[in-house]
């Protein structure tokens, strides 16, 4: 039997060195709500667990000049308890507050949710829609990439050996911007998204949508950016015709599979339905001047 080691580095450099030494069979532990499940189910057998929760950069929520930065290991509950963040980013919080039960959110982090690379991750579509970037540190140094570039397929990321996500940055949004996320699940709670939709839209002074971003979860191998769906909103007052076009474009963008959680047909249809509902929430928030 091989021994599973456990390390708790307190600096990024130490963490990177440990992970680089681990040669791919080291596992990063943040909230552990995916890693421990995978260990329980015998899906993974890491030689080394690197607990990154004692690295301060990964645990902070900071308001910067150009936006908000929060550490990749900040838990869902820590975000939910941060009043200013919640007020500034209701769309992000729509997603974060759906990551499992309160117990799970007591541990689960957005960093983990993103790096677990489930196409159904609830925090991802709203982050993409908001234009979030991730700061990554590794043996070759530091780089910033858009959140959508982290997951490359179910359970697969673009992170190289030794790389970890340190923090996420949400750039200040233009005035008149609203963001929202909703998912569809058979149960009201404790479920995995069958479809998730995150939308961020900005209204000009004339009430016309000047820019929009639509991201879809659980309808392809990774969260999708639905450009045609966003285009359906731009230049409109987000009226019925625009919403119809949005719904059709969102459905058209889906490349889902049939699985135990839903059929292709169902996902395609509900993606349109949800896009419409989410756009209306985002619109309301945009009119209220939020996000």
């Amino acid at each position: 039997m091989t021994e599973m080691k456990y390390e708790v580095p307190t600096s990024l450099d130490d963490a990177v060195a440990l992970l680089a030494d681990g040669k791919g069979n080291a596992k990063v532990l943040a909230g552990g709500t995916d890693v421990l499940v995978q260990m329980h189910m015998d899906l993974i057998e890491p030689d080394l667990i690197v607990d990154i929760k004692n690295i301060s950069e990964l645990r902070q929520i900071t308001k910067e000049k150009d936006g908000y930065r929060f550490g990749a290991a900040v838990s869902g509950v820590e975000l939910m308890d941060h009043e200013d963040f919640c007020q500034t980013w209701p769309g992000i919080m729509d997603g974060v507050s759906l990551i499992g039960s309160l117990q799970v959110k007591g541990r689960a982090s957005v960093g983990g949710n993103v790096c677990n690379a489930s196409p159904a991750a609830d925090s991802v579509p709203a982050m993409i829609a908001a234009g979030a970037t991730a700061t990554i540190v590794g043996p070759k140094g530091k780089r910033d990439i858009p959140v959508e570039e982290i997951a490359t397929g179910p359970g697969q990321t673009s992170l190289e050996d030794g790389e970890i996500v340190v923090s996420f940055f949400l750039p200040n949004s233009a005035p008149g911007t609203g963001g929202a996320y909703q998912r569809f699940t058979p149960r009201t709670e404790m479920d995995i998204a069958v479809v998730g939709v995150g939308i961020s839209l900005t209204l000009g002074d004339d009430g016309v949508c000047s820019s929009a971003k639509v991201a879809l979860g659980a309808v392809a191998a990774t969260a999708l950016i639905a450009e045609a769906a966003a285009a359906a909103l731009v230049g409109t007052k987000v009226d019925k015709a625009a919403l119809d076009n949005l719904a059709a474009a969102a459905s058209a963008a889906c490349k889902p599979i049939d699985d135990k959680r839903g059929t292709k047909e169902y996902r395609i249809k509900v993606a349109g339905v949800l896009a419409r509902r989410v756009a209306l929430i985002a619109l309301e928030r945009a009119l209220g001047g939020k996000e």
């Binding site: 149960r187 709670e189 479920d191 135990k260 959680r261």
Partner: peptide, 24 residues
């Protein structure tokens, strides 16, 4: 109970065997 094409149970857990939660 959901089975895959190999006759293997696809949802052997409380996440995907969806028993009602309080809010349902």
């Amino acid at each position: 109970y959901i089975y895959d094409e190999n006759g293997v149970m696809a949802n052997p857990g409380f996440l995907d065997y969806r028993m009602p939660v309080a809010s349902d």
